[in-house]
C-alpha cells in the first residue's frame, strides 16, 4: 500500500518544475519521495549545486510540499533540502509553512516571490509557444495561417500542446476555443507582421533555457553519481 501511495506521490511531484528550467524535478532527479505505512511523506530535494539561488530552492520546496500534501492518503509531508547553502533555513521554513520573506527576515523587501514566479512562468510560456508555433509553421502554414489559428484548432490530445496550454493557464491567458493561439504573455494576439521577430526572440529564450537545463543536469549527475543512489 505504501508503495502504491509512493507512486502517486511521485506522480504529483512530477508536476513540480524547476522554475528556471521548466522541467519536472522528478525527471531532472532533483526530487524524490517516499511514504510510510502511516501516510507520512518525505520529499528530499537534491539540487545541482550548493549555490542554486535561495529563492529558486524555496519555490521548489514549497511547490513540492503543496503538490504532495494534495495527494489523497498523504497525512503529513516533510520536505528536506540537502547539501545547499540555505538547506536548514528552507527546510525548517517550508515544513512550518512560513513564507520566503519570513525565512530570511531583513534580507528581502517583503514583496515575496510572486514577481519571480511570474517571470519564470513567462519564460516557460514563451519557450513552449515557440516550439508549438515553429511546428505549426513547419507543417506548411504561412505566418498568416498561424496568427489566425484558434485554440480550438489545436490537437489538445498532443502532450506538447497540453503542456503549452497549461503554461497559458498559469499566466491567466484564455484557453477558450475561440482564443487566438499566437499571443503575447498578456494575452494580446501577435500581429502577423511581428510573428517573425517574435519567434526570433522567443527562440533565444528557448535555446537558453535548454542549455541551462543541460548544464544543471550535468552538474547534478556529477554531484550525485548514480552508483551512489540511496533511498530516502
Amino acid at each position: 500500500m505504501a508503495s502504491e501511495l509512493t507512486a502517486r506521490v511521485t506522480g504529483a511531484l512530477d508536476a513540480v518544475t524547476d522554475p528556471e528550467l521548466d522541467r519536472s524535478v522528478v525527471e531532472l532527479g532533483f526530487a524524490r519521495a517516499a511514504v510510510d505505512d502511516a501516510g507520512r511523506a518525505l520529499v528530499e530535494l537534491r539540487l545541482p549545486t550548493f549555490w542554486c539561488a535561495a529563492n529558486f530552492a524555496y519555490l521548489m520546496a514549497a511547490d513540492a510540499r503543496d503538490a504532495v500534501a494534495a495527494v489523497p492518503g498523504v497525512r503529513s509531508v516533510t520536505v528536506r533540502l540537502v547539501d545547499h547553502f540555505v538547506a536548514d533555513e528552507v527546510t525548517a521554513s517550508v515544513n512550518a509553512g512560513r513564507s520566503f520573506d519570513d525565512t530570511f527576515p531583513e534580507q528581502t523587501d517583503g514583496a515575496g516571490l510572486d514577481a519571480l514566479r511570474r517571470f519564470f512562468w513567462v519564460k516557460a510560456f514563451t519557450a513552449r509557444q515557440e516550439v508549438l508555433l515553429h511546428r505549426l509553421l513547419a507543417e506548411g502554414r504561412s505566418d498568416g495561417d498561424v496568427c489566425a489559428l484558434r485554440v480550438g484548432d489545436l490537437d489538445t490530445a498532443d502532450p506538447e500542446t497540453g503542456a503549452y496550454l497549461e503554461r497559458r493557464v498559469r499566466l491567466g491567458i484564455s484557453t477558450a476555443a475561440e482564443a487566438p493561439v499566437a499571443v503575447h504573455p498578456n494575452g494580446q494576439p501577435i500581429a502577423v507582421e511581428r510573428l517573425d521577430s517574435y519567434l526570433t526572440r522567443a527562440r533565444m529564450t528557448r535555446v537558453c533555457m535548454e542549455a541551462n537545463g543541460s548544464l544543471c543536469g550535468g552538474l547534478h549527475a556529477t554531484r550525485y553519481p548514480r552508483h551512489e543512489e540511496t533511498t530516502v
Binding site: 549555490w51 542554486c52 539561488a53 535561495a54 529563492n55 520566503f100 520573506d101 530570511f104 534580507q107 528581502t108 523587501d109 514583496a111 515575496g112 516571490l113 514577481a115 519571480l116 517571470f119
Partner: peptide, 13 residues
C-alpha cells in the same frame, strides 16, 4: 552575477 542579491526575493541573475 551570482546566486544572491539584496533583496533576496528578487532574481539575483
Amino acid at each position: 552575477k551570482g546566486p544572491t542579491i539584496w533583496p533576496l526575493n528578487k532574481d539575483a541573475f
